[in-house]
């Protein structure tokens, strides 16, 4: 092999003790069994098999494509399957400028998702309208749908988007099983006019 600057120090694959596994939840373990709370198992499963739904309208969407592709590889975090149907997805990723005329469309997509659903606003435009402080642009998607995580940047780098997804994972992991049925949650959706 001709040495170039990429392979002057060739690395040997090291998979021994180097495979990422999720941490085991707290519980009681004995010979042949392990007992823990249902909630923590469900949280663990949900967190590590999220289906994102990209709602990409501009340059943040391009950053997301890099995030999704092999170099940054969102699949490493369990989001292997990027779905393009709101019915089957858990995480709505809004990336890019949302014009006021598109707000009802975005809201419709959100309503079509089944509970539990999470929303991440990627980039300045989705979070606050960004530089488009003008009559035609929605000043942040949280005016029409509730948002769980905001990723700053114009556009954010793939690392930032991955960090946002990890923050969503933390939320999912910590979420109680009955949260979506709570009065507090219903009141939150009520402020958006969602039943």
């Amino acid at each position: 092999m001709r040495p170039v600057r990429f392979n002057v120090h060739p690395k040997q694959a090291d998979i021994k003790d180097n495979i990422a596994l999720v941490e085991m939840p707290d519980g009681t373990t004995g010979e042949g069994y392990f007992a823990t709370s249902f909630e923590s198992v469900v949280g663990l499963a949900r967190k590590n098999s999220m289906w994102p739904l990209p709602f990409a309208t501009s340059c943040c969407g391009i950053e997301f494509m890099a995030t999704m592709a092999s170099h940054y590889d969102l699949a490493r975090f369990g989001s292997e399957r990027v779905g393009f149907s709101p019915r089957q997805c858990d995480l709505l990723m809004v990336m890019g400028t949302i014009a006021k005329k598109m707000a009802p469309v975005l809201r419709q997509v959100y309503l079509q998702m089944a509970e539990p659903r999470w929303v991440i606003a990627v980039g300045a435009c989705a979070s606050s309208g960004g530089i488009f402080d003008t009559y035609s642009v929605l000043q942040g998607i949280d005016q029409v749908i509730p948002v769980d995580v905001y990723v700053p940047g114009c556009p954010p780098r793939p690392e930032a988007i991955i960090d946002g997804v990890l923050r969503i994972q933390d939320l999912i992991h910590a979420e109680g099983l009955r949260r979506r049925n709570s009065d507090h949650y219903k009141a939150l959706l009520g402020t958006y006019g969602i039943q």
Binding site: G129, D133, T134, Y135, S136, V137, Q139
Partner: peptide, 17 residues
């Protein structure tokens, strides 16, 4: 009619700025 000159470019309904 947003392009008439009496209307400023910025969204006038914003209160968080």
């Amino acid at each position: 009619f947003p392009l008439r000159k009496e209307f400023p470019l910025e969204d006038q309904t914003r209160i968080d700025k």
